[in-house]
């Protein structure tokens, strides 16, 4: 069962596969995450994908600013994401995939 509402359309199949998906905005700092789905307008989704934020990408929250934006690491790239968009990116933590 997925805890997500009905209004998730784009990438719904992927998100639905995970029971422990949570919005990026709720993720803790310094935990390895896998992006499993995005819920946003088509233009924005494609733009995010072009920047590398696409389902399957491995990311990590470097810093969150309370109710403000957050910084995400993806490989060697650092990206600033507004809180609003972070609500719409869904991730699963990769607990057994931490490098030592």
């Amino acid at each position: 069962m997925t805890p997500l509402g009905k209004d998730i359309e784009v990438g719904a199949k992927r998100i639905g596969d995970y029971t422990n998906a949570l919005p990026l905005s709720a993720a803790k700092e310094d935990v390895e995450l896998r992006l499993v789905g995005t819920r946003c307008g088509r233009g924005l989704c494609l733009h995010l994908a072009a920047m590398g934020l696409r389902p399957g990408a491995l990311i990590r929250v470097v810093r969150t600013h309370g109710p403000g934006p957050l910084i995400v690491a993806m490989g060697n790239t650092r990206m600033a994401l507004g809180r609003g968009i972070a609500h719409h990116l869904f991730v699963v933590p990769i607990e057994d995939h931490r490098d030592s």
Binding site: L48, M79, L81, G82, I85
Partner: peptide
């Protein structure tokens, strides 16, 4: 929304 790369 803010989506911006932070260059090194």
């Amino acid at each position: 929304p803010l989506v911006m790369e932070l260059p090194p």
